[in-house]
Design a protein around this nucleic acid. Structure first.
Length: 854
DNA sequence: CAGTGAGCGAGCTTCCGCTTGACTT
């Protein structure tokens, strides 16, 4: 039976390629390219017959046990057809997707879509080696329906969460925004950090730095720091409370200011400096655990300055080249093959003394997590040395990082010695510390990076001279030193991924895109590598926190995961879980409905922040954030806040300045070369406009012009303004009437006008180049001829029952009824031209009345 | 928060998590 064929389906082409090597040639291995079916992505994916259903937009029939509507996306249709045709000659089908929730779901969807008539077996393996795969072929099982339901529950919950909250945000804050279980959690972390920075009170403290050396050896200089005075410890950054800016316990410590530290520095100049104690301790440090997606992104960011997206793209290349294992994983597990490869290479390159006597193994930290993947490491049973990869640039750098980290895991611990020397100088006590590396161990290849540059220095050696108690010292320099406490640092791409991962939010495949989403929505912007929330972001998270606190609780996802695990084990019912989440008194549907009534858009666009103990309100509007000042009896003054100001960096003085400038009139963007008058770019009720000169007694109506469509008021230049203000443009006179023809920019875009007649310019016309000939041509066209609509299909005249003139017209969206000035779309079954032809007045009236009821 | 002329009914936007390769610049 050697000619029998078998079909094996995995998710990725690379995995397919690898497996193929371990199977006989009558096994066809194909890839599904990830998920092959999903809820509809946009309204255009929803079949016309279902569009009318109330639940259609959700893609989940919430009234029929949350029945999901699954669609095969366009780019996956070909894959399914291919798989179907390949399946035909096969005796058995093996579904070999990952053994986790999503992988099991892919297998189930394949089963549902392919409907194979031959036996289908679910095959799973955790390591791509010949033995593992052949074992897996023999030990197959059925698709685990419970695990599939757990995935489906997760999918439906995320859809309901996102698709009910997002529309509420459109209504209350701004169109096109979004909320989601993952993105909103990320946004909340970033916003919370910003609030900590807002509340933070800076404190200043002083200490003294000295360079000292043994009395007999001028060259052996080392740094020492003041630690206490008359037995009282000198206050450092950690002694201050960030919220109050005050010392946590002022009885315990001595706070130095500028004067005190300078006085002290002078006093101890002539004092006798003497070693009072020398202490040495040895300690070992362990290598970092193997890379998983989140830690790889973090390290590549710290050490190579790569963004999460760059890292993933580069890793993908390395993966495709066969240099590393799969880059989307949450398991730090190393296979036996990897451990052997690393250990052999350590011995080969560094010698036996660098090899850790015991094998270091690593397990996933999450409970109940199936280990579908292993850590990110150099691929194969023999690692490729970085010099032999043929790679260069960022690819090489990233590979080297992965290689080193993996090598380090099997190397000996580093042995270090730390030395602390205490020094007495009059009333003051100084301290110096040093570190020596006794045996580098894994440090030969790898030092883990840090977000804190000061901490990174700890890995450096600081060698102190050999000293003993009672030795006499000399101070070469004594420098009073000012310090200030720092607010908690903003998140970076790397640290937010780490923080999300710690809460179990998001997956390796999505870490990079989470940041993309909140950047795209304009919730966060990047300032260098720091993620800074915008005022829009602050407004959105404020709304969610105030009205849907439970949903943006950091533990929401982990609680969900717990339930999903129970669903997968058969300990919890998925329908009950979703019903509780969405329906009933405390359910999401009801909650959104209630809050919709409660939330005032004006209020939700106002961000309340505290600055130096004083409340400050910032509003977000169509043209960005602004502040409002209500003067007594005077008009409200609005002032825009520059976009690059972070919420925590708002300075009340600066706000005052902005408001003052706004009250005194705006800043011109330039001067008109002809009239020498100043030109302004202002924002009015109908959008942004240019203004030539100021409003004065003599000139109450200065010349104004709208910005051309699509022009951003922030980037508008003086040239744009001069051109816009040059309008209307006279094209010439009409040959018949001798009246002028003008071109201008209006409410509905550019147009030409002659003798009270207006025509819009077409797409191909340009306001500043359109000529007389073209204008006459446009003006000669029937008004509204450019529109497809307006054609009368049937004229009923005055309909007695409705007391209005009624027509059936053919428009942009198909036939519709025009009742007086109101328009009604014809129902689905009445849109046929023949049906319209035969339509009676009574029939028409009933359609109109039915529509009026709605 | 200003001034400059029509009519157009309706649907659209949004979530999270799997995965490439085909597009363009």
């Amino acid at each position: 039976m050697a000619d029998k064929k078998y079909l094996v389906i995995v998710e990725s082409p690379t995995k397919a390629k690898t497996i193929r090597k371990f199977l006989p040639s009558n096994y066809i291995v194909e890839a599904s390219m990830g998920h092959i079916r999903d809820l509809p992505q946009s309204a255009s994916d929803i079949p016309a017959a279902l569009k009318k259903e109330e639940w259609a937009k959700l893609g989940v029939n919430v009234d029929e046990d949350f029945d999901p509507l699954y669609i095969v996306p366009k780019d996956k249709k070909k894959i399914i057809t291919d798989l179907k045709s390949k399946m035909k000659d096969c005796a058995t089908i093996y579904l070999a997707t990952d053994e986790d929730r999503e992988g099991e779901s892919i297998s189930w969807h394949l089963l549902e879509l392919l409907k194979p008539k031959v036996p289908v077996k679910r095959m799973v393996f955790h390591e791509i080696t010949k033995t593992a795969i052949q074992k897996a072929l023999k030990e197959t099982r059925e698709v685990d329906e419970k695990l599939v339901r757990a995935q489906e529950t997760r999918r439906i919950l995320d859809r309901l969460y996102g698709y009910t909250l997002s529309p509420l945000i459109w209504k209350k804050i701004a169109y096109g925004l979004s909320a989601g279980r993952v993105q909103s959690t990320g946004l909340r972390m970033i916003a919370e950090r910003e609030r900590e920075r807002m509340r933070f009170k800076r404190s200043v403290y002083w200490d003294i730095k000295a360079q000292v050396h043994p009395a007999a050896d001028k060259k052996a200089l080392f740094d020492a720091k003041l630690t206490s005075i008359k037995g009282g410890r000198v206050a450092g950054g950690k002694d201050f409370d960030g919220l109050t800016g005050k010392l946590v316990d002022d009885k315990k410590v001595v706070l130095l200011d500028e004067k005190k530290s300078k006085d002290l520095a002078k006093n101890i100049e002539k004092a006798e400096w003497k070693v009072t104690s020398v202490e040495e301790k040895t300690f070992n440090s362990k290598p970092a655990i193997p890379f998983i997606t989140s830690t790889l992104q973090m390290e590549a960011n710290r050490k190579l300055g790569m963004s999460s997206k760059d890292t993933m793209r580069t890793a993908q290349r390395l993966y495709e080249e066969g240099l590393i294992t799969y880059m989307r994983t949450d398991s730090p597990n190393l296979s036996q093959e990897a451990i052997n490869a690393a250990r052999n290479m350590v011995v080969e390159l560094y010698g036996k003394e660098y090899l850790n006597p015991e094998v270091r193994q690593y397990a996933a930290k999450q409970k109940g997590a199936q280990e579908a993947h292993e850590a990110i490491r150099p691929a194969g049973a023999e690692f490729t040395h970085p010099d032999k990869t043929g790679m260069s640039g960022r690819e090489l750098a990233l590979y080297e990082l992965i290689w080193k980290r993996t090598m380090a895991t099997q190397m000996k611990e580093a042995e270090k010695a730390s030395m602390t020397i205490k020094i007495e100088a009059g009333d003051a006590e100084f301290s110096a510390s040093g570190t020596r590396i006794l045996f580098p161990g894994f440090l030969r290849v790898y030092v883990e990076g840090s977000d804190d540059p000061e901490a990174a220095l700890e890995d450096k050696e600081v060698i102190l001279p050999v000293l003993k108690k009672g030795d006499s010292l000399k101070a070469a320099t004594i420098t009073p030193d000012m310090h200030e406490t720092k607010p908690p640092a903003r998140f970076t791409e790397a640290s937010i991924v780490q923080a999300l991962e710690k809460e179990g939010v998001g997956r390796p495949s999505t870490y990079a895109s989470i940041i993309g989403t909140i950047l795209d929505r304009g919730y966060v912007r990047k300032e260098g590598s720091a993620l800074v929330p915008t005022f829009t972001g602050m407004a959105v998270i404020q709304l969610l926190e105030n009205h849907f606190e439970h949903l943006v609780d950091y533990s929401f996802t982990s609680e969900m995961e717990e339930s999903l695990d129970k669903i997968a084990y058969g300990e919890e019912d998925w329908l009950k879980y979703l019903t509780k989440f969405y329906k009933g008194k405390g359910g999401l549907a009801k909650k959104v409905e209630e809050q919709d009534k409660k939330i005032k858009p004006e209020e939700s666009r106002t961000i309340h922040i505290m600055k130096d103990g004083k409340p400050m309100d910032i509003k977000v509007g169509r043209f960005g954030p602004y502040v409002v000042e209500k003067g007594e009896g005077k008009e409200e003054v609005h002032a825009s806040i520059p976009e690059d100001i972070a919420p925590a960096d708002l300075d009340p003085e600066q706000i005052k300045e902005l408001l003052k400038n706004q009250a005194n009139g705006p800043t011109p963007i330039g001067t008109d070369p002809k009239t020498k008058e100043k030109i302004y770019c202002l924002v009015g009720r109908y959008g942004a406009y240019f203004q030539l000169g100021e409003v004065t007694e003599e000139n109450p109506k200065p010349k104004r012009a709208s910005l051309p469509k699509g022009k951003d008021p922030k980037t508008a230049t003086i040239e744009d303004a001069i051109q816009a203000l040059s309008l209307p443009r006279e094209l010439g006179v009409h040959p018949e009437t001798k009246k002028p023809i003008l071109a201008n920019n209006g409410r509905f875009g550019p147009y030409v006008m002659h003798d009270g007649n207006f025509r819009s310019l077409k797409k191909e016309d340009d306001l500043f180049t359109v000529d007389l000939k073209r204008a006459i041509e446009l003006l000669s066209e029937e008004k509204g001829a450019s529109r497809r609509g307006g054609k009368v299909l049937k004229d009923f005249g005055l309909v007695a029952k409705l007391k209005k003139k009624v027509q059936v017209l053919d428009g942009k969206y198909g036939p519709y009824i025009k009742v007086g000035t109101k328009n009604i779309t014809l129902p689905e079954d009445k849109r046929d031209p023949k049906v319209i032809e035969k339509m009676t007045e009574a029939e028409l009236a009933s359609i109109v009345l039915a529509a009026a009821k709605k």
